[in-house]
Design a protein around this nucleic acid. Structure first.
Lengths: 233, 233
DNA sequence: GAGTGGTCTAGACCACTTT
DNA sequence: AAGTGGTCTAGACCACTCG
């Protein structure tokens, strides 16, 4: 159980601020604990699972900043939410296209794999660290010619100001998964890094299902929080 | 990237039902893919992160059953919730004591580390698989002599029927972490297994903070889901 | 008692990032 | 050009589970 001791030792060094934002190389750390890289990586991976460290692919290990508090029942756009918590947000548009959805998405939006949907992919940063890939699938019937708009604004603002649609109800799901493929790459993560997956189905003020969100978060970058009035029997 | 191919191959075998509920031994699997145990375990760990497989410590690898849909805004007790989804629930009381809380808990419940609290630990099973360790910290002022009650019933029923307190509001947080120590052992998990952590602060019908829940779930056993009316600016 | 998973050693090569 | 992380090999021992 050597790796547990190493884990605790590294954690103490993190807490006491002896390590910078970036950890020393695996070889140096392994040597300093008198062990092999495999065992050292076991310890680092544990700290990664616990959300105390994160990796950037081939760049090394870093200490995780405070997570963003994320309330799925709040429509506040990402930039406003981040700034309210003293963070510096930034977004990059990855793509905006009209596509035929796969079966899973078609089912979510109660349409077919033959009916095209708008798909908007974004990469969002916190303090210059990429933390989430967000994919929106949007029903075109409610938003004609959406692709001609300027996506520097958030979707909820575009919906409200250009189409008079206001998010009013959401059905969200949260589960854990791991990052793969282009999502992992965009987040500078190694394939297999732990992730938090948030799926949202959004309804407008007339109770029409208008779009869905698929969000893949670096799992240490987010803490879901909400206040709820309980439904009693 | 051999382990990615192995991962996909194992996943296909899972989907097509070629594997039983329990996987063959690591040595056999490694041999069948012409690789070493280390690489094979890399592939299995990925599937574990994705929630498709889980491990029981020294017992082997198993295919994950469907996750339980868990709505944090619903007070339905665990047994009722599980049965409504066609699952077979069971609970074990691990301990029920009066203890001094640590700093974190004291802060959560707005008390001090000197004031004792009831602490109730439970292990919950789904279809005979241990899936979550739940720890409740309860403010004794609202529930005199709580420890003398029979804990075969759920807490919310005891609160309602013996103390006239009804859960009416909750502040919940969801994050990911990993299992360690006695929590891991209770869940038959290896230290470091990925986990979903749910923290709840519960209020009664008079808006008094009455208790908190700390829940460590095997991450593949749960999918958080809720419906929310959005708070618009 | 046989076999298993958990842990660890001591290397190696490559592609990539960084200096 | 040097160093790094990602990946992989080919073993080993132990404590534990299971038949």
């Amino acid at each position: 159980m050597q790796y547990l001791k190493i884990k605790d030792a590294i954690f103490e060094q993190i807490e006491s601020g002896q390590l910078g934002q970036k950890l020393p190389s695996e070889r140096k750390l392994a040597e300093s604990f008198n062990t092999t890289r495999i065992t050292l990586r076991e310890a680092l991976s544990l700290l990664e699972s616990e959300g105390k460290l994160f990796r950037e692919d081939r760049r090394g290990w870093f200490i995780s900043p405070q997570p963003l508090i994320y309330d799925p029942t709040n429509t506040t756009e990402f930039p406003a939410m981040a700034m309210a918590q003293g963070r510096n947000p930034r977004s990059e548009l990855l793509s905006a296209e009209l596509v035929k959805p796969n079966k899973q998405i078609a089912q979510l939006l109660q349409t077919t794999t033959e009916d095209e949907l708008y798909r908007i992919k974004r990469l969002r940063f916190l303090d210059n660290r990429p933390v989430v890939v967000v994919t929106n699938y949007i029903l075109p019937s409610f938003f004609p010619n959406l692709l001609e708009t300027d996506f520097t604004h958030s979707l909820s603002i575009i919906y409200r100001e250009q189409f008079n649609r206001i998010y009013s109800k959401t059905r969200y799901r949260v589960s854990t998964t791991s990052l793969t493929g282009s999502t992992a790459t965009a987040l500078r993560a190694t394939a297999g890094s732990p992730a938090m997956f948030v799926e949202r189905l959004n309804y407008d003020q007339y109770n029409n299902l208008i779009d869905c969100d698929l969000e893949y978060w670096r799992h240490d970058a987010i803490c879901i929080q909400s206040l709820a009035t309980l439904k009693n029997a």
